[in-house]
């Protein structure tokens, strides 16, 4: 079992290294992995890309997804999207496997309430009025000064 998982992680690493070289990730780029069909979650993520890049002083973001809606609509949300790459479900799983082995970078942000494995954000939704937008901004994008009253719709 461990060997199989390590194999997936190695494949994920290989994918990541190619991405790093292609987009010069180390020079201020964040990679958004968007593997979910959750429309509300995805919209919040796309709408806050500019907040993310401003807060992190980033050059821009690269989006990786296999979700049709994201591929068709993401470009309209921000001009900080440097690239929008379509990837397969298997590639997503391999990249997540590498991330589940260890959080090898802070530049990979997974737009999900359940992934990577062990992510408990889905359990926090609704507690004390916590919204998906809160979870995206605070817990996925780590915009520390986010408060719903100041930035929410």
């Amino acid at each position: 079992m461990i060997a199989k998982r390590l194999g997936a992680a190695l494949a994920g690493r290989s994918m990541w290294m190619k991405l790093k070289r292609k987009y010069d990730v180390d020079d201020g780029v964040y990679v958004l992995l968007m593997p979910e069909d959750d429309l509300e979650l995805n919209e919040h993520a796309l709408r806050h890309i500019d907040d993310l890049t401003a807060y992190r002083k980033a050059r821009g973001v690269v989006i990786l997804t296999d979700r049709a809606w994201v591929l068709e609509n993401a470009g309209a949300y921000s001009d900080k999207i440097l690239a929008l790459d379509e990837v397969t479900e298997r590639e997503i799983d391999n990249l997540l496997s590498f991330f589940e082995l260890y959080a090898f970078t802070e530049r990979l942000l997974v737009v999900s309430l359940t992934k990577p494995f062990g992510n408990k954000l889905h359990k926090t939704l609704g507690a004390q009025g916590v919204t998906k937008e809160d979870l995206v901004c605070l817990c996925i994008f780590l915009i520390r000064d986010w408060t719903e009253t100041e930035r929410g719709v």
């Binding site: 959080a103 062990g118 992510n119 408990k120 954000l121 359990k123 926090t124 507690a127 004390q128 009025g129 916590v130 809160d134 979870l135 605070l138 817990c139 996925i140 780590l142 408060t147 719903e148």
Partner: peptide, 17 residues
Amino acid sequence: DGWLGEPSQWLRGYKGL
């Protein structure tokens, strides 16, 4: 809550948590 980088830790202190 939120051990070893689990993201729910970033809710600590938010909205009365």
